[in-house]
């Protein structure tokens, strides 16, 4: 019975390990600007940026004390530089961020290329606007991003080969 329970537990843990880790905790610093009594910092990830999924994280702080303002209402607007795709609006929230100092928005870019980003944050009555542009590379084929998941058996096969070789030598000696 315990063996069965162990099998189920290990299988469950292996399945759990398939869950993709959630990382929305910053990334590359795009800008750190002071606007009035507010400092706004914007990060993007992954590095390098690739379509389609891009994380834009925002940190709004009180410029005097440096304390993060978590309850700012932050909207991220992305507009393609070539105008070929519609603009994207996404709300950056504290809940979506791993680092709870930040507010994050996970956006899906329809195309690669240069995107103009405008971040508007209403931080306790003070509106802060920051602008920058970013270039997202084309998406890698899905298999490129997941290659470790289906190539690790090669290591297992090599280890098996090594094991059989050593077992054969051990048998030969004895």
């Amino acid at each position: 019975m315990w063996r069965g329970i162990s099998i189920v537990a290990v299988s469950g843990l292996c399945v759990t390990s398939c869950l993709a880790p959630v990382w929305a905790d910053g990334g590359t610093v795009r800008l750190v600007e002071r606007h009035g009594n507010r400092t706004i910092s914007v990060f993007t990830s992954p590095n390098p940026l690739r379509a389609p999924m891009v994380d834009v994280s925002v940190l709004v702080q009180d410029a005097t004390t440096g304390e993060a303002i978590h309850d700012a209402v932050t909207i991220v607007q992305l507009t393609p530089a070539d105008g070929t795709s519609p603009e994207i609006l996404a709300a950056a929230t504290n809940e979506a961020a791993t680092n709870k100092l930040l507010q994050s928005a996970l956006v899906e870019l329809p195309t690669a290329g240069t995107w103009n980003v405008t971040v508007r944050s209403d931080a306790r009555g003070e509106m802060v606007i920051a602008r920058f542009s970013m270039t997202a590379r084309p998406a890698l084929p899905q298999w490129r991003g997941q290659w470790t998941w289906f190539s690790w058996p090669i290591v297992a096969v090599l280890l098996f080969g090594l094991h059989r070789t050593m077992a054969a030598r051990l048998n030969a000696k004895t």
Binding site: V10, L13, T16, S17, C18, L19, V22, D25, K100
Partner: peptide, 28 residues
């Protein structure tokens, strides 16, 4: 508690693969 410390204490990332490896190792 300061907001920064509060944010720090709430910022737990999710890494199921690491957790699975450590739990299995400890189980063994």
């Amino acid at each position: 508690m300061s907001p920064t410390l509060d944010a720090f204490l709430r910022s737990w990332p999710s890494d199921p693969a690491l957790a699975a490896v450590l739990v299995i190792s400890f189980g063994i």
